[in-house]
Amino acid sequence: MKYPFLISIPHGGTEIPEEVAGRFALLPEEISWYCDPATKILFDFGHRVESSIDTPISRMVIDLNRPPLPLPPRDPDGIIKVRTVDGRQVYLPGRLPDMDLIHQLMLKWYFPYHQRIDELIDHYPIHIAFDCHSMLPYGSTEQSDAGKCRPLICLGNYGDEAGKAKPGSLTTCPPGWIALLADIFREEFKGKDEVAMNVPFSGGFISNAHYWRKGIPWIQIEINRKLYEIQDIHARQPVTREDQVLELREKIWRILTRFWDKIADNK
């Protein structure tokens, strides 16, 4: 039996394409630090789900979870990064991609990813989609929660801290769904305060845009990297405990299937 899930992993890649090689002020290990490299394993549920999508490209080259506009330098943390979340320059002086190169990158990596999501939803019996990420244990200097400790799990549906729609907006999944998923995560992680909804992240461009385009419910999942990494903050180099990643993957899978089984039973 396959579960009717679409799994999106937009930040798991670490590759730097030839077009931008030699432009970065960041070292290769630092580029990995600012990506979510373990998520490609953490959320790889194989043939147990109807479909999944990821990318080899680093989010420091092009961020698939950002809207196509604005372009740099207007948004330093947009589709093309100017600065990291802790304020470091991404590119060497004078080496930020120009408009022609940005256009090439978008045509090669950005638009195909989003087109493929639509195709997967059209061709497979997808009933819910999960946009899957990891997060640092604390808020970085250029983020809204700078210096604050983060929960182990953050679930996002563009709502408030209870999963309900904010005034004048909609959520990307029913509030009852995300609340149920949060409750099951809390059971598995043994702590109410360890699982949050929409804080510090409520969802990115992928879940919002494709919910509006196709009407399939989306939930963004953020997993705290301290669950599987030895943090080397000063070196900005991820040290991943592979056994913890595999164990955590099976726990997440157990949670997602428990959640969906309950949803299906109530339909």
Rank of each mutant, 00 (worst) to 15 (best):
L120V: 09
L120I: 08
D122A: 15
D122K: 15
H123G: 06
H123D: 05
P125M: 15
I126N: 06
H127R: 15
A129S: 05
F130W: 03
F130H: 00
D131E: 11
D131F: 08
S134Y: 00
S134F: 09
M135G: 03
L136M: 10
L136S: 11
Y138D: 06
G139V: 04
Q143F: 02
S144I: 10
S144K: 09
S144W: 05
S144A: 14
D145T: 05
D145M: 13
A146R: 09
C149I: 04
C149F: 12
C149V: 06
C149M: 15
R150I: 04
I153F: 12
C154Y: 05
L155F: 12
L155C: 10
G156E: 02
G159K: 01
G159L: 14
D160K: 09
D160R: 02
A162F: 04
G163M: 04
G163C: 01
K164I: 04
A165M: 07
A165V: 09
K166N: 14
K166W: 09
L170M: 08
T171G: 07
T171E: 05
T172V: 03
T172D: 04
G176C: 08
W177E: 07
I178S: 01
L180K: 10
A182M: 11
D183F: 04
D183R: 12
I184M: 06
R186C: 04
R186F: 06
G191Y: 13
D193W: 10
M197R: 09
P200M: 12
S202I: 00
F205C: 09
A209R: 01
H210E: 01
K214H: 11
G215W: 08
W218T: 00
W218F: 14
Q220H: 07
Q220Y: 03
